[in-house]
Design a protein around this nucleic acid. Structure first.
Length: 681
DNA sequence: TGAGTTGTTCTTTTT
DNA sequence: GAACAACTCA
């Protein structure tokens, strides 16, 4: 008779001691989220409730309790957010989080597709098109079809691109539904647009091109067609964490579902009241779909606001109450004391800018660092006047949002050469590059592209020369250079230097009015490239993360003092500041004129204001000009945003700007402005 | 076919 | 103030 030995069940959690005092550093709700076990979890978190902090601790906790870092996926809204979170988690654990997979949905998908593109019939060196590249390709096809003069007005290339993108992010709706809902004026072109869309898809496949939407759609396609790849990828996703879930679209939700297919551990964090990316296909209802998508979901809440004072939250709560949709969250703070938010009407834009500048300087005198203050606005040109005033006074600032350096024509030109070296079949890049040569217009460019991209020969060789002598010499020069760079593996910076040397005269001819400034940008770009490992990495960073470049651009200017932040409200998502100014709070701007006829869009504008307001910790100033000037039509009276109407003075304190009545400074507000300040802290 | 000029339209937010 | 269509001239 054999002897029996009774085995005890293994303890669930590994016995390693935890190095972080989770219970001590988090509140009970946060602690519950951080230490929650596996399975699907939805965390509904109001503004300022320590969402980021909670995710950071969650990553640390998972690593400490035995999850291999490389099997954690952290999907965030920007790459900057991912980097920051991972850095903080790494700081908690002495760098043990380094191998966590993280980034935006687009970046994550791109990584996968580079590896598995072959399975979908794409070359692995495919090019990623940004929105304006995509519009250029569409334009190419539109011209080829002769659609641009098909009678009634045909939408412009950017609009077509927007329509296709909307269709791609709503995989359940067809083109007709999209047009009906958002572009009824183009319904008459439905068939032409459908044909064009098919052509566009086909063209991209032939030339190794993917736009932003393809990155998501192809990933889903890959998983559907190749279950083995899907299993392999999902197996490495032991825990999937998604930040800002309210701003995901249907495709992204499907990707999350696919990634969690093996282990089933998904945690999504979001706030339906802060959804501000509807125009990009996001739907805040996605967050309520989560429990349906993942049966057995546990819903946890973070409710206590640590960021703002109660008066600021009172205003935020009042604002969100105006929405047609009911948001059942009321933010409360332990920080009962605080100044009331101010509403500041200014006679005109100039005065509004002067007010903001002088208040900023006064607060800086009081000891608030510049970079703890932010000026927020609906769209980037709302800040032009203020920027002039800041420049005049020498106040350093960084501006987020709006036009990116990588979207400027001259930058795209230079990068097009680089793109060709990476993918010699990139028709969009060829189109740019060829048309820069004198004597080559759209027609010739197209013929040449066809010939170049169909030949299977070594790239950048000119065997016969069936071209007009008008441009033959220039074409040979271009090909020789590209061939040379393609064959010799120079460091990235040297490649760009060579290309810039070639491009410089073209740039001077084309932009004769302002080429010195543009060349300066390009030299900056060349020096920036030195930090990148490879051509591909550089190009990818520029397509997926154009923000970073704008931010970097200003860095060297500021040596001693971190600068003031100017930002679109969209780009300020997830950030917080000691003091926030919201400028141009006007009908037609916030809410935007485009939203006025659509209750859903109007709700989104309201959420946008809600996001802006909840960025502030201590002081909040909302201002607007009472008169504006418009080129041509002169000045006109404005009306303040409807969202701020009829709010009692206990919630929003009205201010009046008064000019100092001395003769010498009759046109200036006092620079110290001390008497106008709220009491210091 | 390309280059250059003029008049018209539209103007948001971002990966 | 830019992008685009429509025009003229070489």
């Amino acid at each position: 008779m054999a002897r029996r030995f009774v085995l005890k069940p293994e303890a669930e959690a590994p016995t390693t001691r935890l190095t972080v005092d989770y219970a001590g550093q988090l509140n009970p709700q946060q602690y519950a989220v951080v230490t929650a076990g596996g399975g699907p979890i939805l965390v509904v978190a109001g503004a300022g409730t320590g969402k980021t902090r909670t995710l950071v601790y969650r990553v640390a906790y998972l690593v400490e309790t035995g999850t291999p870092p490389e099997e954690i996926v952290l999907l965030t809204f920007t790459r900057r957010a991912a980097r920051e979170m991972l850095a903080r988690a790494a700081a908690l654990l002495d760098g043990r989080c380094e191998r966590v997979q993280g980034g935006t949905f687009h970046a994550f998908c791109l990584g996968l597709l580079r590896r598995y593109a072959g399975r979908l019939g794409y070359p692995s060196n495919f090019t990623v098109l940004d929105a304006s590249d995509a519009a250029d390709v569409i334009d190419l096809l539109r011209t080829a079809h002769g659609l641009h003069r098909s009678g009634r007005r045909f939408p412009r290339k950017q609009t077509i691109q927007a329509i296709f993108s909307a269709a791609a992010s709503h995989p359940d709706a067809d083109l007709e539904t999209i047009l009906e809902a958002r572009y009824p004026q183009f319904l008459e072109h439905l068939e032409a647009l459908q044909a064009l869309r098919e052509d566009y898809a086909c063209y991209k496949r032939q030339h190794g091109l993917m736009d932003y939407d393809d990155l998501l759609a192809c990933t889903i396609e890959l998983f559907r067609q190749h279950p083995d790849v899907h299993r392999q990828v999902a197996a490495r996703c032991r825990h999937v964490l998604v930040d800002e879930y309210q701003d995901t679209n249907r495709l992204q939700a499907q990707i999350v579902q696919a990634l969690a297919a093996v282990h089933g551990n998904v945690m999504a964090v979001g706030d339906d009241a802060q959804s501000i990316y509807r125009f990009r296909g996001a739907d805040f209802r996605n967050i309520f779909e989560f429990p349906r998508l993942f049966p057995g979901t546990r819903i946890l809440k973070l409710e206590q606001n640590y960021r703002s004072t109660q008066p600021i939250l009172d205003l935020a709560n009042r604002i969100i109450r105006r929405a047609h949709h009911r948001y059942d969250k009321v933010l409360f703070s332990e920080r009962k004391q605080g100044e009331r938010p101010a509403i500041v009407p200014a006679p005109d834009e100039r005065t509004e800018s002067r007010f903001v500048c002088q208040m900023i300087l006064a607060l800086r005198e009081q000891g608030v660092p510049l970079h703890q203050m932010a000026v927020l606005f609906r769209s980037s040109h709302n800040a032009f006047d203020l920027e002039m005033e800041l420049n005049r006074r020498g106040i350093p600032y960084v501006k987020y949002g709006g036009l990116k350096l990588s979207e400027a024509a001259h930058v795209k030109d230079l990068l097009a050469y680089l793109r060709l070296l990476e993918n010699p079949k990139d028709a969009a890049a060829w189109n740019r590059v060829l048309q820069l040569i004198e004597g080559i217009g759209p027609r010739t460019a197209q013929r040449l592209i066809e010939w170049i991209t169909s030949a299977d020969a070594t790239p950048f060789t000119l065997e016969e020369r069936p071209f007009s002598p008008r441009y033959a010499e220039a074409l040979i020069r271009l090909f020789t250079l590209l061939r040379q760079l393609w064959e010799t593996e120079l460091p990235l910076e040297a490649q760009l230097t060579e290309l810039l040397h070639y491009y410089r005269p073209l740039c001077e001819r084309r932009y004769y009015e302002d080429y010195p400034k543009r060349l300066q940008d390009l030299e900056h770009l060349v020096s920036l490239s030195a930090r990148f490992q490879s051509r591909a990495a550089f190009l990818e960073a520029l397509v997926l993360d154009p923000l970073e470049l704008t931010a970097l651009e200003v860095e060297p200017l500021v040596e001693d003092e971190p600068p003031l932040v100017l930002s679109t409200i969209h780009s300020a998502k997830g950030l917080e500041f000691h003091t926030v100014f919201i400028i141009h709070a006007l009908e037609g701007i916030l809410p935007s004129a485009y939203a006025l006829n659509d209750p859903e869009a109007l709700d989104e504008e309201l959420r946008l204001l809600y996001v802006a307001v909840t960025r502030a910790r201590e002081y909040l100033f909302i201002s607007y000009p009472m008169v504006r000037y418009q080129a041509g039509s002169g000045s006109y009276l404005t009306s303040p945003s409807r969202f701020l109407e009829d709010l009692p003075e206990e919630i929003l304190e009205p201010w009046v700007l008064v000019e100092e009545p001395t003769a010498s400074s009759a046109y200036e507000l006092p620079d110290s402005g001390a008497s106008a300040l709220p009491p210091g802290d």
